[in-house]
Design a binder for these strands. Structure first.
Lengths: 341, 341
DNA sequence: TGTTAGCACTCACTTAAGAAGAGTGCTAAT
DNA sequence: ATTAGCACTCTTCTTAAGTGAGTGCTAACA
């Protein structure tokens, strides 16, 4: 158990290091407001805190730097929520000001704004399209043997894909298929679409049109490749501003990581509500060994949800980021859900 | 006018420097195949070439490096086209192998392949959607006061946007509007859509439905924000592999440039057929002062065209890149055009 | 007259050594 | 228990010397 004074010292060190990125020395701490004891005393406390694993030295005679355990303790016990300014609130809410209505646009803009506000990199995961429900099917013929299938979902999202038509497929055949699809599949969530199409609707189509195996496999194909939630980045290059990434190799690894969308997905905790913080090696990724990731989630209507992440150095301004993420996720949930009515 | 021997020396220097990224010395040149004269002679020639502006020294007693003018001369007069291997051809053609039919997917995949083949960064500009012609309109109501408008083009491209409905707008009203739009606007290129809608179709709609000013402005809005050709990158982080970008600041500027899609558009020459090469400061951009950009264009059917660009260090392998771009642009044109039939 | 060998010279790069400064740990006094 | 004092450590900056690659010039050569 830490003494009050140790808590105070730890807090000051983390706060100061977050601001300055420089190892914090005893003399510096002693000058801080609220510190009534001498550098020598502080040195003793620091030695203890180091022994307990909360602090580290960069070399034998340097000031102290928070360890991962130190940051962990800090975010778990010392983090007082920050109040965000009205300015920041306005900026976040400006996402919705000019009646953008596509969820994708909203998310994209949110990513940009968040990175500007934090000067870290933001990653937004769009809501999972799989949970949208089919609102309308249509098929538009393009050439003699190809057509584009369009699925509009209840959220106003549009999926479309070009597919091959079987030979001698007439416009009236298409109309029949579209009618069947619209009769049978409206309200079905995209995630069940493929199964439903394959095992229920296929039989109906066959019955009405004879066997059109080609068409069916094409259609099944169309529904199969639905993308999961899309990723949007804001401020990818903000990393360059952080002194800890004054190292080509670190930046490079991060940039390469961000190009691999499948890998980056794993930074989002599954089905976790609230704010999650992962520090350094907790991210289980070499490139992010000196990074912290803070995530929050928002939801659209019922069930569908997306995530927001901020990725920055372990030395990031946790207070501020947590406050901003908290507000933004709430705002997104509110606004996006309201739009559904 | 350069002597034969000067040409030979210049060629060897550029070729060697492209390979090694190291300043080339006279002794090194003398050992090259086809060189029959001594280092001393070569030194004299190099001094002349430097005086003429084709070579530079990094410092007083270093080997020579091609200047921008040197590269320019090299690509204009010394560049013998390279023959690409069947392996490379296969790789490029693999874009089309698994019956991907969306142009966007094709372009995206091409960007990746091109960056893998060259180990530089590729930028592909999708064909300008503005020239696509309307194939089908539809409007799907979402809530009482919003709907999504969908435009399918002759290329199978789908544009969609959510817009507000006027109050008390019934489904049958929507059907009427859709019918009018489909009667009047099929075949119209997207670039003229807004004008046409505003000055011709608007009147018809008013006539049939009374004044629905709100709907009209919404619809005009929908057609207005059509995006221009989209950009796709491949191998954004390949820059990190080039020794000349072992400098955090240079990489940073490039990365920042690539985030700004509007700025990056300017690297594509307008309406220029064939292969274009811009070297260093010819790019008119600080971040690309040490880069060369090679562009080619492809076309889809008649009129519509997109561009391919490779961006690498001025020291890039012009021979190889030119050959690859040439082949790929041809292949894209062929395949994408064929698909339209 | 064009080509080449020889040689002094330049400059980047590396290594070593010394000086300065920040900060610690320990000891002893308060 | 706290603190002043001081020796010690380790980084960083500066300076100096040594090394090597490569040039430019001069003079000899074909």
């Amino acid at each position: 158990m830490l003494t009050n004074r140790q808590l105070q010292v730890l807090q000051v060190i983390v706060d100061d290091f977050i601001l300055s990125a420089q190892p914090v020395g005893s003399r510096q701490i002693s000058k801080k407001e609220g510190i009534t004891f001498s550098p020598a005393t502080i040195r003793n406390e620091m030695a203890d805190l180091e022994e307990l694993g909360f602090l580290e030295k960069t070399h034998t005679s340097s000031g102290r730097v928070p360890s991962e355990k130190g940051y962990r303790f800090y975010v778990d016990h010392l983090l007082k929520p920050q109040i965000i300014t009205t300015n920041e609130i306005h900026k976040i809410q400006s996402v919705f000001q000019d009646r953008i209505m596509e969820t994708e646009q909203v998310i994209r803009k949110s990513a940009t704004i968040l990175s500007e506000l934090t000067s870290y990199t933001s990653i937004l995961l769009g809501p999972d399209v799989q949970l949208h429900k089919v609102k309308r099917f249509s098929i538009v013929p393009l050439t003699a043997d190809s057509a584009v299938a369009i699925i509009v979902t209840d959220n106003g999202h549009v999926e479309n894909r070009i597919f091959s038509l079987p030979e001698d497929f007439s416009p009236s055949d298409i109309e029949k298929v579209v009618n069947i699809l619209n009769e049978r599949l409206i309200g079905v969530p995209l995630e069940h679409l493929q199964m439903k199409l394959e095992f229920e609707t296929a039989a109906v189509i066959k019955q009405h049109l004879g066997t059109y195996g080609g068409l069916l496999s094409s259609l099944i194909d169309v529904t199969a490749h639905q993308s999961e939630g899309k990723l949007f980045y804001g401020g990818k290059t903000n990393m360059f501003n952080q002194p800890e990434f004054n190292d080509l190799n670190k930046v490079r690894m991060l940039m390469e990581l961000m190009e691999k969308t499948t890998q980056i997905q794993s930074i989002f905790p599954l089905n976790q509500a609230g704010i999650q913080i992962r520090i350094g090696s907790e991210n289980n990724h070499l490139a992010m060994e000196e990074c912290s990731v803070i995530t929050a989630s928002y939801s659209v209507g019922e069930g569908q949800s997306g995530s927001i992440a901020i990725i920055g150095p372990t030395r990031m301004d946790y207070r501020r980021v947590v406050a901003l993420l908290d507000f933004m996720s709430g705002d997104l949930t509110r606004q996006l859900t309201q739009k559904l009515r």
